[in-house]
Amino acid sequence: MSNLSDLLEKLGLARKGGVDNAGWGRTLVVAIVSFIYFLPVLMIIFTAFKPQDAALSVPPTLSPTSLFGLIPDQYVFTPTLENFGSVFSRVMTAGGQPEPTGFDRFFFNSIVISSVSVLLALVIGTLASYGFSRYPLKGNDTYLFIILTTRMLPAIVVIIPVILMFRVVGLSGSYLGIIMLYTAFNLAFTIWMMKSFFDELSTDVEDAARIDGSSETKVFFKICLPQVVAGLAATFVFGLILTWNEFLFALLLTGVDTRTVPVAMNQAVSSGGRGTDWTLLASIETLFLIPVFLVTFFLQGHLLRGVTFGTVKR
């Protein structure tokens, strides 16, 4: 028994106790598991660079390089950028000229609609959650619960009344309509999330600022808000990912001009009657990943940073 534990320890898979950096063995196990999770994404990214005929070839092509002869030639594909070009412009009818596909517009729509609605939700939600946290209403929890109920039904259940309402007031197909819907959609999440960050703060710090001569507005902007930057960043990223990938509302409530990428992606791939164009789909998806990837990457520092700041001994 002790031989086994000694062996495990030598391999870096176990240790004698206490908290320390993980050994190489554990790190390797985590790397393997992470790779398995990441594999589908990697396959999509590779597919985006494959020539069309290599996408569904049997045996599958696995790598753009032979890794110095390590991988047999039949599994290697020659990478191409052609697919990315045809996202924005391609031949639509047999024998015709390449036509613009409108995807520049759809990407623009996706960026504007999701960033505006997430930012709006962040502004409104942060103010609301500060109110809920610092100036609780009678029956505060009930109000918070009611706000959460807006997220308890699946979208498919509420979509019909929403469509009808949008028709009546003429919001169907407009930027305003879909932005308002997404803002409302994000608010519940934003309020709950930000409230937990505000609840964490020491109110003594705010009282200290009041004694130091700050008005309530300044207490909020100069004292509270800077302390929840990590929370704002996290809420922004999560909200952005949810909104960026939203399909159902976008499918039914956006028009030709306001179409977002997930909807357009679906239509681009299923049109043409030639079956699914996997390389095209993969390249749209790859491009679609980039903005969220960049935002998450740049905010990562804030996302990982703890929310307690160590000045208060609790």
């Binding site: 020491s202 003594d204 710090v205 009282d207 200290a208 600022a209 009041r210 004694i211 130091d212 001569g213 700050s214 004292i223 800077p226 302390q227 930057v229 700041f309 160590g310 000045t311 208060v312 001994k313």
Partner: peptide, 19 residues
């Protein structure tokens, strides 16, 4: 008002501005 009382206070938790 709180401001203008000529009073200042040190809190048990110190209440420094962490940022």
């Amino acid at each position: 008002e709180i401001a203008g009382r000529g009073v200042s206070m040190v809190f048990q938790s110190f209440a420094l501005y962490p940022h």
